[in-house]
Design a protein around this nucleic acid. Structure first.
Length: 470
RNA sequence: GGCGACGUACCCAAGUGGUAAAGGGGGAGGUCUGCAAAACCUCUAUUCAGCGGUUCGAAUCCGCUCGUCGCCUCCA
């Protein structure tokens, strides 16, 4: 089986066919750093993360680039409003983005290109578009892409270009264009705005050009997969596609992938409407990071997902179930021969997991296979049917699956010394049949997030992922 | 106004023509346990928004109606 993905441009589900297997290049539209990214942004970043992780699990050599947009209208306004330099603002929120991403166990992209560090590549691309007649200058020093020069324009978003609605925005547009639908490649200098002195004149890049320039700079003229939120289909990706192919004459992207929106309170989560929940704030409020990650990845990326306390609670409970299994496997001490049926059971779990992900990253289906496996393993533990080596095999499968999910299955982290001492004391109290003391210690540990369980394999502990806020 | 997605149990959700409608959460009962927790077992949708149609057969295909959401403008 190979991974099949729904490509936005063709509208078809197709097997992934990288330009240069086993290399796969992936470009993801990342954050615009004028403020903190919200969990809706992270849904789309984590969907790309799952894609990258799964391709690596499948043996592909993935090169993943995620851009950091550090120059645009909102950043300029934001910096002016805060009375601070642009670099101060963008650096602060870039740092926060990386902190949030790490908290959510997002794979660090191989490259995190920033727009302001790619002005020469942007300028070069615009020059090529000017040479080829796809772009034109306006008196204020701006440069626009001429949509009428590119017949395929509108294909990605399935928009009839002639029918594009011309909104009120047009009259307030401060730039002169030949056609209202043309988009800016380069914005001429304006008082109070940063400008770069370049061979195409002073100014700053438009919004879409940076992604074309940076993806080509880091991944080549043709990349295998390009991801982003559905809201980027138009105009951002439509424009990227047009300007890139117009400049190079080569196919820009093999597969376009778009992630549906995160909903909150019945509407799309968006910075512009203020309907947002931020990662750092949620974590501070007591939402477990692992549960947040699971909640954000467990629904198919093309289905809209509602964020709320219920989904966090359900995710936290699911993680507890997984943790309980790995704790039981680690503690398992029955000395008996290998279970002859185990390998089949593990293989079924793995195959089901892979089959789900192969089907356009159907994480829900993959998780269902995982949880079927969890029940199978728990049954065998209860029946004392496994050998110790079997328990190790099962743990190895969980760890393997977790290279894709990244939710921290089969954790084996050590306890703080004082907690470890309490755990030991509790075991001793119980061995002495001092129920009052053993119960007291168990309660105390529970308050500190450690669950103590007495089993046929003796006392064992695991961390609880209790939701305390959100 | 144009384009599109979706509507499956208390909640989330898989399933896109074929004998019992995955999985997670929650709830009820049981087993085990010093007590508990975890785990396991049983139960929790004769039914897939509604209506009509196609078919031997539909949650799955077609039409209409209702509802929710998105894109067309900054946006992950």
């Amino acid at each position: 089986m190979t991974l099949r993905l729904l490509d936005t441009l063709s509208g078809e589900v197709r097997p992934l066919e990288p330009f240069n297997p086993p290399d796969v290049t992936i470009y993801s539209c990342g954050p615009t750093v004028y403020g903190p990214a919200h969990v809706g942004n992270f849904r789309s970043f984590l969907f790309a993360d799952i894609l990258v992780r799964y391709l690596r699990y499948r043996g592909y050599r993935v090169r993943w680039a995620m851009n950091i947009t550090d120059i645009d209208d909102k950043i300029i306004k934001g910096a002016a409003a805060a009375g601070q330099p642009i670099e101060g603002l963008t650096e602060r929120w870039t740092r926060q983005f990386l902190i949030d991403a790490a908290a959510l166990r997002m794979t660090t992209p191989d490259v995190l290109p920033r727009a302001t560090a790619h002005i020469p590549q942007i300028v070069e691309l615009i020059e090529r578009l000017l040479e080829r007649g796809h772009a034109y200058r306006t008196p204020d020093g701006s440069i626009f892409f001429r949509i009428s020069s590119w017949p395929a324009y509108g294909r990605l978003a399935r928009l009839d270009v002639a029918g594009l609605r011309v909104g009120e925005r047009v009259e307030s547009d401060e730039y002169e264009k030949d056609d209202v639908r043309d988009f800016a490649l380069w914005k001429g200098p304006k008082p109070g705005e940063p400008a770069w002195q370049t061979s195409i004149g002073p100014g700053r890049p438009g919004w879409h050009i940076e992604c074309s320039a940076m993806s080509m700079a880091h991944l080549g003229p043709s990349l295998d997969i390009h991801t982003g939120g559905v809201d980027l289909v138009f105009p951002h990706h439509e424009d990227e596609l047009a300007q890139s192919e117009a400049a190079t004459g080569q196919p820009f992207v093999g597969t376009w992938l778009h992630c549906a929106h995160l909903q909150m309170g019945g509407a799309k989560m968006a910075k512009s409407t203020g309907n947002v929940a931020r990662v750092a704030e949620l974590l501070d409020a007591g939402v477990p990071a692992r549960a947040l990650r699971l909640a954000l990845i467990s629904v198919h990326y093309r289905a809209s997902l509602s964020y709320g306390e219920d989904s966090i609670r359900a995710a936290a409970a699911a993680i507890d179930r997984l943790d309980a299994l790995s704790a039981a496997l680690r503690a398992y001490g029955e000395d008996r021969p290998d279970d002859p049926t185990l390998l089949d059971a593990l293989a079924r779990t793995r195959e089901g997991f892979e089959a789900g992900l192969d089907d356009d990253l159907n994480v829900s289906a993959a998780l269902a296979a995982l949880f079927d496996g969890v029940r199978e393993l728990n049954r065998r533990i209860d029946a004392r049917a496994l050998s110790r080596a079997d328990a190790g095999r099962a743990l190895a499968l969980l760890a393997d699956i977790d290279t894709v999910l990244g939710i921290g299955l089969a954790p084996s982290d050590a306890l703080d010394p004082d907690l470890a001492a309490m755990v030991e004391a509790r075991a001793a109290a119980r061995a002495a049949r001092d129920w009052a003391e053993s119960d007291r210690l168990r309660d105390t540990l529970a308050e500190r997030g450690i669950a103590i369980e007495d089993t046929r394999d003796g006392q064992r502990w695991r961390r609880l992922s209790e939701v305390t806020g959100g």
